[in-house]
Computed example of a mutant assay.
Amino acid sequence: MTSFVRISKGALVNPTYVDSVHPISSTRMEIQLKGGQVLAVSRRRIGTVSLQLKPHALN
């Protein structure tokens, strides 16, 4: 069973479809999905999302 990761108030992400994680600064992060879509991670969730998506390469 796949567990989804909440990246913001309005978005859940299936880690299977995450292509890369891009830290923009200490207060901004973006996730690129395998389909090319880029999603912003809310400031409040950056720490949690980083830990949950650790198996995915940080680019």
Rank of each mutant, 00 (worst) to 15 (best):
M1R: 00
M1S: 01
T2W: 00
S3W: 01
F4P: 05
F4T: 08
V5D: 01
V5W: 00
R6T: 07
R6K: 14
S8D: 13
S8C: 11
K9W: 10
K9E: 15
G10Y: 14
G10L: 11
A11H: 13
A11M: 11
A11K: 10
L12E: 06
V13Q: 11
V13C: 08
V13Y: 10
V13I: 15
V13F: 12
P15T: 02
P15E: 04
T16Q: 14
V18M: 07
V18G: 02
V18D: 03
S20T: 15
S20A: 11
S20M: 09
S20K: 13
S20G: 05
V21S: 12
V21P: 06
H22V: 11
H22K: 14
H22L: 13
I24R: 04
I24L: 07
I24W: 03
S25D: 08
S26I: 11
S26A: 10
S26F: 12
S26P: 01
T27V: 06
T27A: 06
R28K: 10
M29P: 02
M29I: 09
E30F: 05
E30N: 08
I31R: 05
I31S: 05
I31F: 04
Q32N: 10
Q32D: 13
Q32A: 14
L33C: 02
L33R: 04
L33I: 01
K34T: 07
G36A: 12
G36H: 11
G36T: 09
G36R: 09
Q37A: 11
V38F: 13
V38H: 13
L39K: 07
L39A: 03
L39D: 03
V41E: 04
V41N: 03
V41A: 03
V41I: 05
V41K: 01
S42K: 02
S42P: 00
S42H: 00
R43M: 03
R43L: 00
R43W: 05
R43P: 01
R44A: 06
R44T: 11
R44V: 07
R44G: 00
R44S: 12
R45H: 15
R45D: 15
R45N: 15
R45I: 14
G47F: 04
G47W: 02
G47H: 07
T48I: 15
T48A: 15
T48C: 13
V49A: 05
V49C: 03
V49Y: 02
L51N: 09
Q52T: 13
Q52N: 15
Q52G: 12
L53W: 11
L53H: 10
K54F: 03
K54P: 04
K54V: 07
K54A: 14
P55E: 04
H56Y: 11
H56E: 08
H56N: 09
L58S: 08
N59Q: 09
N59K: 13
N59D: 12
